[in-house]
Design a protein around this nucleic acid. Sequence first.
DNA 1: AGCAAAATTAACTGATAAGTACATTTACAC
DNA 2: GTGTAAATGTACTTATCAGTTAATTTTGCT
Lengths: 250, 250
Amino acid sequence: MATRPTPGKKSQETLKASPTGQKTQPRKVPSRRSKAEPDGQRTSASWTQDPEGVRRDILATARAEFVENGLSGARVDKIAAQTSTSKRMIYYYFGDKEGLYRAVLEEAYAGIRKLEKNLDLGALKPTEALAALTGFTFDYHADNPDFVRLVMVENIHHARHLATSSKIGALNSSAIDMIREIYGRGLEDGVFRPGINPIDIHLTISALSFYNVSNQASIQQVFGHDMAAPKARLRRRHSVIDTVTQMVSV
Amino acid sequence: MATRPTPGKKSQETLKASPTGQKTQPRKVPSRRSKAEPDGQRTSASWTQDPEGVRRDILATARAEFVENGLSGARVDKIAAQTSTSKRMIYYYFGDKEGLYRAVLEEAYAGIRKLEKNLDLGALKPTEALAALTGFTFDYHADNPDFVRLVMVENIHHARHLATSSKIGALNSSAIDMIREIYGRGLEDGVFRPGINPIDIHLTISALSFYNVSNQASIQQVFGHDMAAPKARLRRRHSVIDTVTQMVSV
DNA sequence: AGCAAAATTAACTGATAAGTACATTTACAC
DNA sequence: GTGTAAATGTACTTATCAGTTAATTTTGCT
């Protein structure tokens, strides 16, 4: 099942960003919907081209839809209706529904990676550095439920879109490198106990941060506990940092 | 629910004898349960009723489909085709697609709750009891990815089916009661440090157990680390128990 | 034996959703 | 200006899907 229809004839390869190498100058776009006149004639539908803007418009709208309804539940027609452009353009720029989803996913991963790169924990002592990294990770997940939900969706689909995305593979191990570095310093300082695998540290931090968002709804239903409430979130943040700290300390 | 014990049990699948597709004819219905005669002929239009069996058949098939494709991605026709009964019966017993999904979900929750109930950790000392509970939880998740995936799917849908299920609400807090009891004993014995909320212990155990299954695919893609591999799983199990132990110990 | 309720079957339907055909307009290079 | 490729709009097609209709058979009961 789920075969690719492969319509044939023309294959759009148009994934170029801006045709002009210029910086994205946000041109002011008049509503590009042409409206029909009362007499049935249509107004000389005048519109300004804005490929990059259209692309971004589609991407943002699509993200909301995929986040809310998953890949199978998302409706291309609904996305089209909520953009200021038409369904045709979705297929023009992204090929098909999965191509659109893939683009959304890649953008989401790019987001967290960018922030991670800007983290500089070198000035902090190992224990504080690890606590800061944990706090940052926890906050990023809590502040970006869209990202969390996209990853959930992708895992439901066995991450097969990550697998076929050229943009994501392997570049992400920077997170683990960072932990490895902090852990190494902690060992030297004698404040961390030896024998811990950096991957385990990463998995622990990620799991505790991710779960708090991903399973918020079911926890709420089953236990009546609202992890999204500001107070609960802060308490939990503390607890997570504490847990990670205890985990590595001598 | 039918209460009548099932009379004759035969797990027989039959090929769908397509009766030449003529329109609106009084039909001969060779059934899935019509059995082959000794001479190889099949008795026409004969089947044994087995409501309970049919129900279970549908439920099991549906679970596989929902687990694999989520609620929106699941196809009622596909479920029907894979049962030994027909689509009509799905609607007969479960009302609609969501009713079927809800039944699958309820069954999944009932499964873990039943096992939890049978856990008796009273004989163990607090530290060992908590370690045992953690190990059990970790193993249950790893051994039942279906359950994990259903919970993921349900969270994508904001747990609105849990919310409307009469069978699930509030009954599940036994898990936290168990932890509260262990934690209390640990405090008395002076082996656990005070000031920890039992909910945090539960969330930590659950998160670490859940994530290892729920995010297995994306972790594999992004970090090239296979958490499902037996060796990795066992190592991780150790680490999780260790983390939880450290978390509560003085 | 006969009847009503429960169980089961095959075929049908209306809606919807992904994807396409094709015309039209804009932007830009010369 | 004009030709052309990129960008965009409108309307359509085709498959699929959740849910139904209506007939038929089984079964428990009296």
